[in-house]
Nucleic acid binder design. Structure first.
Length: 501
RNA sequence: GCUCCCGUAGUGUAGUCCGGCCAAUCAUCACGGCCUCUCGAGCCGUAGACUCGGGUUCAAAUCCCGACGGGAGCACCA
């Protein structure tokens, strides 16, 4: 083949697909996956990774994909986030076959709990949290373990269900002497009296993640649940619970969390910044929340591809944002309109300027049409470019004609210097005196190491060409020689958010 | 402290299960060139890595042991 058609070999090598590795124990048509967010906040890039992997595997195997809200802690779940998360997922281009809430199934969970207690595989513990913690640390069990199970346990369980005043917990009879502390009789149910956004005050006994997660995965038919690595120690708990209940055990798998250098995802870090007014909210353009990324001009396809490129090993990685940028740029470049923006403008007067009407292409390659500009003798050009120039230099007003500099002062004086393109001359973007003043917000790294970077959001002031004023908010364009930006309305003003170069 | 997971260029990743075809893949970043009326895209090139130490073997990124480094868990959060 190498001798017959060497070009084929070459091409094969170049095409890199980021398709998912095959799933173990998977058959086409028989794969069910699930994405189980807790409705307690906005989705971020880490959630996106999980959701994309879950969703894409279901698709790859012609399977079923479930969106399940793990809302078993009424203190955390907030009504607004069910919807917000749905919107974020839709934006990502993810579709699900089934949607439900773990809180829909509390009665089932109660029945299973009862079964465990009856089997003496779970017990009611009324020790103090401190005692429990201490016991777990020292691998010592308490008296409740043997006393409050079976029929005695069942009785206490009924009391728990009957009154929120009975503040006991249900614990699994695991292995108190296990090396794995997760197995030292983990909590299965506890009393939480906060009002739940969906079930209101109807329930006050709530399953913990260990119980609810395992049970839901099993009874909803999930075949391949993925979770992040920090749950790995809880795998034995997961399987133990299902085995005791004689429920089907899915094929659990873990992958590492995805984090981006300088862009924290944790609410613990972000919330104080919002409260201090250092970031505008969870949709701040410096944040890796889906909303932040969207505002910044990241497109869902790019996020998806970025996730694929990361793969999903168990290696912890801190990705550089430039990897995200480059993927995004490849999506944006072919389909985004070009305009001129002049940062830090300086006035240019071309004394003998011919009056012209020019059509400038909206894209260098793609057929996107033109915008029309009328020029006279007044222009604005970037100060930075002018600082490199001296009297006598010739540069080109990009797409227009050449100008020879005759004087440099507060303003630049120039003279018309012909139309033909001079290969080695600078081509500089410009506006006429018909401009649109525009501010570009330039996001940087929110954190440098562990400390907040006070210069993480800079501003670039300048003039955009007038046509930009007619573009709809939300449009992403490229300002030539500046970078990609997304336009946004902020109190009746249009501002641009710098996406990346 | 104990337990578990992980360790390939600056960053991310393929390869590790089933040792040889790996003088190690691809991307990104950096640098240089070509192309282009953009500092974008495209094309070409340069630079850059198997954490360390032992062992097994004819042969180790790949298997074994140990160290070191990073992460996680020891919640009535998920």
């Amino acid at each position: 083949m190498a001798t017959l058609a060497p070009e084929l070999l070459k091409k094969e090598k170049k095409e890199k697909d980021f398709s998912l590795p095959p799933l173990p124990l998977a058959e086409k048509g028989n794969v069910i996956t699930r994405f189980p967010p807790e409705p307690n906040g906005y989705l971020h890039i880490g959630h996106a990774k999980a959701a994309i992997i879950d969703y894409e595997y279901a698709r790859l195997y012609d399977g079923t994909f479930i969106l399940r809200f793990d809302d078993t802690n009424p203190e955390n779940a907030l009504l607004e986030f069910y919807d917000a998360q749905i919107q974020d997922l839709r934006w990502l281009g993810i579709e699900w076959d089934l949607e439900y809430h773990t809180s829909d199934h509390l009665q089932t969970h109660y029945k299973l709990a009862e079964q465990l207690i009856r089997q003496k595989d779970a017990y009611i513990c009324n020790c103090t949290p401190e005692a429990i913690k201490d016991g777990r640390f020292h691998a010592k069990s308490c008296a409740c373990r043997n006393e409050n199970t079976g029929s005695v346990g069942l009785d206490l369980w009924k009391q728990m269900l009957a009154s929120p005043e009975i503040n006991y917990i249900v614990r699994l009879r695991g292995e108190m002497d296990s090396d794995n502390t997760a197995m030292r009789d983990p909590t299965l149910f506890r009393v939480i009296t906060a009002t739940h956004p969906l079930t209101s005050d109807n329930y006050h006994v709530w399953p913990t993640y260990d119980f609810a997660g395992a049970v839901e995965d099993s009874i909803s038919g999930v075949t391949h649940p993925f979770r992040t690595k920090e749950y790995e120690l809880r795998d034995p708990v997961y399987f133990h619970i299902l085995n005791l209940l004689q429920l089907r055990t899915p094929h659990l798998m873990e992958f590492s969390r995805l984090s981006i250098e300088g862009m924290p995802v944790s609410k613990r870090k972000i919330k104080p910044l919002i409260e201090q007014g250092l970031v505008s909210g969870f949709d701040d353009v410096r944040l890796p929340t889906l909303r932040g990324l969207k505002r910044r001009g990241l497109v869902p396809e790019a996020i998806k591809q970025f996730v694929f490129q990361q793969g999903f090993s168990k290696v912890e990685s801190v990705v550089d944002f430039s990897l995200v940028e480059s993927v995004n740029r490849k999506f944006l470049d072919p389909r985004v309109k070009r305009y001129y923006f002049v940062p830090d403008p300086v006035r240019l007067v071309v004394a003998d300027a011919p009056k012209k009407t020019v059509k400038l292409p909206l894209h260098p390659d793609a057929a996107m049409g033109n915008r029309t500009l009328h020029t006279a003798s007044i222009f604005y050009i970037p100060r930075q470019d002018m600082q490199k120039m001296k009297v006598g230099d010739v540069f080109r007003l990009k797409g227009l004609y050449n100008v020879k500099i005759t004087n440099i002062d507060e303003t630049i004086q120039g003279s018309y210097a012909g139309e033909e393109i001079i290969q080695e001359s600078a081509k500089i973007q410009w506006t006429t005196d018909e401009t649109m003043p525009l501010k570009i917000l330039v996001p940087g790294l929110l954190f440098k190491g562990e400390t907040f970077n006070p210069e993480s959001l800079r501003e670039m002031q300048g003039y955009a060409e007038k046509a930009v004023a007619r573009l709809p908010a939300g449009e992403i364009i490229q300002f030539e020689r500046v970078g990609f930006v997304r336009l946004e309305k902020q109190n009746n003003d249009t501002v641009a958010i710098f996406t990346h170069k």
